[in-house]
């Protein structure tokens, strides 16, 4: 009888938790006692841990859900942030592989560059919709803006002129970057479309050709030139963006 015990327990488990046969076997006295014991085990677990399920959700979980709800309501943010990162990185990889012109293979510093281009896209997406504070310092304080951003960037930088493309400077801001601090300029055209020029300290890697990156509707061209990494980002057609990036490259270097 003791030899049958393990099999009988297994049968009981199938009886209790499985889909079960059409006519379940009638438990004998031992089996009934075992089932009662399991009832007590389940009741103890419910008493120990059940109350947790009745608690309100922690704020961080609430926030993640709310963000997802908002994102579903607004088509442009239809992808949650992590998916957007993945998409951006995937497309950076594609861009690097199929880049136009004399695109070089990603150098050892490509991870840092990738992080920078993602930061540029995030910066653009964060501030492009800002009505009241798209920039920290407005373009009417041009001299102060240039001096401040150059100082924080650790490198002299003058906002490129995109007037030929219909984009005028709104102003700029600084953002944390890794390494260092990034300088961000935002431009706007007559229809209210905005583009972002992002400049951050480099990682010492060599000059690269333009690389194209795309995350949902946001597109960007980025390049490394000596001590700085740059990106021009916006929701404008790729060819227009390339023209802007070329103009920026000509004026910045």
């Amino acid at each position: 009888m003791t030899e049958r015990q393990p099999l009988s327990e297994l049968e009981l488990i199938l009886l209790r938790h499985g889909t079960g046969p059409a006519a379940p076997p009638v438990p004998d006295a031992t089996a009934s006692a075992t089932l009662a014991e399991w009832d007590r085990q389940d009741a103890a677990l419910a008493a120990l841990y059940g109350p947790i399920a009745a608690e309100p959700l922690p704020a961080t979980m609430r926030a993640a859900l709310d963000h997802a709800v908002r994102a579903e309501a607004a088509p442009r943010d239809a992808w949650p942030p992590r998916a957007r990162i993945a998409a951006a990185l995937a497309l950076v990889a594609l861009g690097a592989a199929g880049g136009w012109g004399a695109a070089q293979l990603p150098s050892a510093g490509s991870a840092t560059q990738t992080a920078a281009v993602y930061a540029a896209i995030r910066a653009h997406q964060t501030f492009v919709g800002e009505v009241t504070h798209p920039v920290e310092v407005k373009a009417d304080q041009a001299e102060h803006l240039t001096r401040w951003l150059s100082k924080r960037l650790g490198h002299q930088i003058n906002a490129p002129d995109f007037a030929a493309f219909g984009f005028v400077l709104i102003g700029g801001r600084i953002l944390p970057a890794d390494p260092g601090t990034a300088a961000v300029f935002m431009y706007e055209n007559a229809t209210g479309q905005r583009i972002t020029l992002y400049a951050a300290p480099g990682d010492g890697s060599n000059t690269t050709a333009f690389r194209f990156v795309e995350a949902e509707a946001t597109q960007g061209f980025w390049w490394v030139d000596g001590s700085l990494r740059y990106a021009v980002v916006g929701e404008v057609p790729r060819e227009a963006l390339r023209a802007l990036a070329t103009a920026a490259w000509e004026q910045l270097t």
Binding site: L45, L48, Y49, G50, I52, A53, A54, E55, L57, M61, L65, A68, V69, E72
Partner: peptide
Amino acid sequence: VLDEIEAAIPALRRYAVAL
């Protein structure tokens, strides 16, 4: 799906604490 995700969280928390 979003509603169902939210509805599953209490049980996930209960399970995770017990685990």
